[in-house]
């Protein structure tokens, strides 16, 4: 897992987002044990308290849970994780479509463009 931060945005918000992405993508699998706060602080090079705060947020969202003494684990609720994955996919798709619209592509054209990844078959005559 790689973590990249922008100093302009509160660090804990970025950490929450990045961990969410790892959970959604399955890089952190359902039921998997998370690294300890100290380990995560080392991996991300952020303050342990910030890591703690981010994990607290993920726990509130129900994406991770604490087993006393044992540490923190990714939720086993795969439906919930899948729902979040769809939500992320929806946002990214909407962003793509909005960007393509700015370039003058209709939604249909944007989909066709994506299907052949901008290959030579793309018919621009209709534009």
């Amino acid at each position: 897992m790689d973590f990249v931060f922008d100093n302009n945005i509160p660090i804990y918000i970025q950490l929450v987002e990045q961990l969410k992405t790892y959970i959604v993508s399955g890089a952190l699998a359902a039921g998997e044990r998370l690294p300890s706060v100290r380990e995560l602080a080392m991996m991300t090079k952020v303050n342990p308290n910030t890591v703690q705060k981010a994990l607290g947020e993920l726990e509130n969202l129900g994406l991770i849970y604490t087993e006393r003494t044992n540490g923190k684990f990714v939720s086993c609720d795969s439906e919930k994780i899948y729902a979040l994955r769809l939500e992320y996919a929806k946002n990214i798709s909407a962003e793509y479509l909005a960007g393509m619209k700015k370039l003058g592509f209709s939604a249909e054209q944007a989909v066709i463009y994506l299907e052949d990844l901008g290959g030579e078959d793309f018919d621009t005559s209709g534009m």
Binding site: F5, N7, I11, K45, V46, N47, N49, T50
Partner: peptide, 8 residues
């Protein structure tokens, strides 16, 4: 800028 990430 070098240290701000680790600061509470």
């Amino acid at each position: 800028s070098d240290v701000e990430r680790i600061l509470d």
